[in-house]
Nucleic acid binder design. Structure first.
Length: 269
DNA sequence: ACTGGATCCTGATCGC
DNA sequence: TGCGATCAGGATCCAG
């Protein structure tokens, strides 16, 4: 489910929803995730104040006084928010929950178990964070930064912009969309991209992500619901999962790095 | 150092 | 209707 805009939306909604800033307890329901959940998380977070909740790449970060909770949603991670009094039943794929002082609860559910939760005393040194690339919506993503990287790379440009060590937050859908709008075929070798094309690509990555955040903000209101299978940005997609391009040409779907890659032979060079 | 492919897991959907 | 194959918005690990 989650690329940068979805994670950003979830973070904003959590910030908006939670009234109490104190964690009363963190309970592990099923520790089997991408990495087994460290039981110490419950100890470190008990009765701690939340100083800040923010996003880094596709990670959700809870900053506490004594360290950080790092949450990744994987493919199918969902965070539900509810009052303790209204919900008690544990659902099949629930993995942990964070209870706040005022009895509201954030509960994590993940069908495919590709998500994760970690404790980090020092976030910058954490193995999931330390090698992350630049935030795409920041000024750090610019032509000179990316040109230095692409000029010596033979990997496809789509896989390159999805590489979290280079740019964070861009996943399969938004990679396809950005390349489509930029008129670039996803399978092109990174080194073959001209500076003109790169300039276009960078500004379109930013554009697509911003638009998706905007629409996520208005349509993802029901993220509390477990069945909140998101359809938010879907209506705005131009190429991902489409049969036909706007130009009328049928859309091609090839595998790159094992992922479906949609493009239009006519509109993308 | 870089690259493509296999891999983790469950459930929905597709084709026969 | 049933059943196996395929696919899913992620990212790590591993061999070459």
């Amino acid at each position: 489910m989650p690329e940068l805009p979805e994670v950003e939306t979830v973070v904003r909604l959590i910030n908006k929803s939670i009234k109490s800033k104190t964690i009363s307890k963190l309970t592990i329901i099923n520790k089997k995730l991408r990495w087994p959940i460290d039981p110490s998380l419950s100890v470190y977070t008990k009765n701690k104040n939340i100083l800040e909740i923010y996003r880094r790449g596709k990670h959700i970060v809870f900053k506490l006084k004594n360290g950080y909770i790092l949450i990744h949603l994987g493919m199918t991670g969902i965070i539900r928010f509810f009052k303790k009094t209204s919900v008690k039943k544990i659902h099949k794929h629930d993995h942990y929950e964070i209870e706040l002082k005022n009895k509201s609860i954030l509960r994590y559910n993940d069908v495919r178990k590709f998500g994760s939760i970690h404790w980090a005393e020092n976030i910058d040194g954490h193995f999931l964070i330390k090698n992350l690339g630049v935030e795409p919506l920041s000024k750090k993503l610019n032509v000179s930064y990316l040109y230095k990287i692409i000029k010596n790379r033979s990997v496809s440009i789509k896989n390159l912009i999805m590489n979290q060590n280079i740019i964070v937050g861009v996943g399969n859908i938004y990679a396809c969309e950005s390349l489509h709008i930029s008129g670039i075929k996803p399978q092109r070798k990174s080194s073959s991209i001209s500076t003109e094309e790169l300039k276009k690509l960078i500004s379109n990555i930013k554009l697509v992500l911003r638009k998706a955040i905007d629409s996520g903000g208005t349509t993802l209101k029901d993220f509390k619901k477990l069945d909140g299978t998101p359809g938010y940005f879907e209506q705005e997609l131009l190429i991902y999962s489409k049969k036909y391009c706007r130009c009328g040409e049928s859309v091609k779907n090839i595998k790159l790095g094992g992922r479906s890659s949609f493009y239009c032979d006519h509109c993308q060079k």
